[in-house]
């Protein structure tokens, strides 16, 4: 029996004494999956400049908004769509209505070696549906991922929605949709420009922008929550600085896009 007790004690002792890591209360930034690559880079630059760290968590904007409503301890929310920020602000869960940080764009992405061609007018997709080339096609969940909503709007605009529905695989957020397509598990997909230009993605896929007027604009808005402290405030200000702006622009998250 002494053996059993020894183990039990060791476990309890170990569990109780290990200091919880990151108890350093660095603020938590909840951000849309579409900005993950840009934000990681900006957070590194912020750390290099100020010595302060932020903790990043990514997901579909709709899910993050729901979590904030349920009391998630986020200090700053970067949504892929303004509506989530504006609604939360109205409900009094954010400090204010925040600011726009990007104008999101979508496009057609195909993995290298796919039977599809990258075609922003979706004409090749139409042809693929008719000649039976199309297997699976990935978009983000239109229910809670803004990029999924815009993908659906673009497909409806092109008159392809009903034909393509049986072929769709739905990513929980835009990064998962992109992962489905880039890995070749889907023949292609509609993903955000911001993910398509990331080196890991660009090396393995081809991408063409879909005309911006095929869908509702995607004003990406961010705001501090009520619990934000000084470090979160500093990061929020940094996100609006020229240094961060340049990184956003590099990742296709410009505030205004020349038509292309």
């Amino acid at each position: 029996m002494t053996f059993a007790r020894l183990i039990a004690f060791a476990l309890a002792f170990w569990a109780a004494t290990l200091p919880r890591i990151a108890a350093a209360e660095s603020p938590v930034v909840a951000a849309a999956a579409s900005v993950q690559f840009a934000l990681v880079e900006i957070a590194q630059a912020f750390e290099a400049e100020t010595g302060e760290t932020v903790r990043l968590t990514f997901g579909a904007s709709g899910n993050l908004a729901r979590q904030i409503r349920q009391g998630a301890p986020y200090d700053l929310f970067l949504s892929a769509d303004e509506s989530f920020v504006l609604t939360l602000a109205e409900e009094g869960r954010l400090r204010d209505q925040g600011v726009l940080y990007a104008q999101g764009r979508i496009g057609a992405l195909v993995p290298r070696g796919s039977d599809l061609k990258p075609d922003g007018t979706l004409e090749d997709l139409r042809a693929a549906l008719q000649d039976g080339r199309l297997g699976r096609f990935a978009i983000a969940n239109p229910e809670h991922a803004p990029y999924g909503q815009r993908a659906r709007e673009a497909l409806i605009h092109a008159g392809l929605w009903e034909a393509i529905e049986p072929h769709l695989v739905i990513g929980e957020n835009i990064a998962q949709a992109a992962q489905f397509a880039v890995s070749g598990n889907a023949d292609g997909g509609i993903v955000s420009y911001s993910l398509a230009v990331a080196p890991d993605v660009a090396a393995r896929s081809e991408f063409a922008l879909i005309p911006a007027d095929w869908h509702e604009p995607l004003g990406q808005r961010m705001a501090l929550t009520k619990r934000a402290g000084p470090v979160a405030e500093a990061f929020y200000a940094y996100l609006q600085s020229p240094a961060a702006r340049a990184i956003f622009d590099d990742y296709g998250l410009a505030l205004s896009h020349g038509e292309g």
């Binding site: 919880r20 890591i21 990151a22 108890a23 938590v28 909840a30 999956a33 993950q36 690559f37 903790r55 990043l56 968590t57 990514f58 997901g59 979590q67 998630a72 301890p73 986020y74 957020n173 990064a175 998962q176 992109a178 992962q179 880039v182 990331a198 890991d200 993605v201």
Partner: peptide, 23 residues
């Protein structure tokens, strides 16, 4: 959980996140 580093991002969630960030 909400995938907060050092708070709720467990190893299983971290693997899921890594796949989605193409790592």
């Amino acid at each position: 959980g909400g995938s907060i580093p050092g708070e709720t991002r467990t190893v299983a969630i971290s693997i899921y996140d890594k796949v989605q960030s193409f790592d």
